[in-house]
Amino acid sequence: MANQGPAYYSPYPTAVYEGIITPPEGKALLLTKVVDEETAMREVARVMLTSENATIFPGPQVLYGYNEEAKKKAKLIKEMSEVLNAKMIPMYDYRPKYPKIDAEVEINPNHPNLTIWHNNIKAAIFIGVHCHYANVALKIVRCETDCYTIAMCGLSGHEDAMATLRDMHSHELEKFIKIAREVKSELKL
């Protein structure tokens, strides 16, 4: 059973109540520390490459090809999953699903812990998920699982993720893939 949050409002002790806030422009967040973007990218790549059942959760903003940037990002995410040897499970729908989701093939922001528990995921990247649902999902995952969550956000990031890379557009994704390749060869994987 989750603890009551400090304000006794949220059932979870959210990061913001522990003084953790999103990183400023050009920086990234690693657990409680604001660090350089490249440092965070290296650490994220290392965690994804060395954790059990590392998974990428692509959201609707990249699953559907509604503009050129989304199409470009889709290609890069596919490439990223190959570099990181990560599985992909889509978060294609935000509505709660009845009677229950198929945790093997999908993740839902209202009960993301089910997918993480079922697949024993120890590290996960959330990308292309709309802000408010990413916030909900990351809070639940943070409290209910031991999964290392990584938010790759197109805007200002998510403090409830273990690692936040902000302003992640296709150019930054290309940079991350390059770094991930380097880390992979350093780790001799």
Binding site: P58, V62, L63, Y64, G65, Y66, A70, K71, A74, K75, I77, K78, M88, P90
Partner: peptide
């Protein structure tokens, strides 16, 4: 057309 799934997924 905006609902078209990206082929990668």
């Amino acid at each position: 057309h905006i609902y078209k799934i990206n082929p990668e997924f």
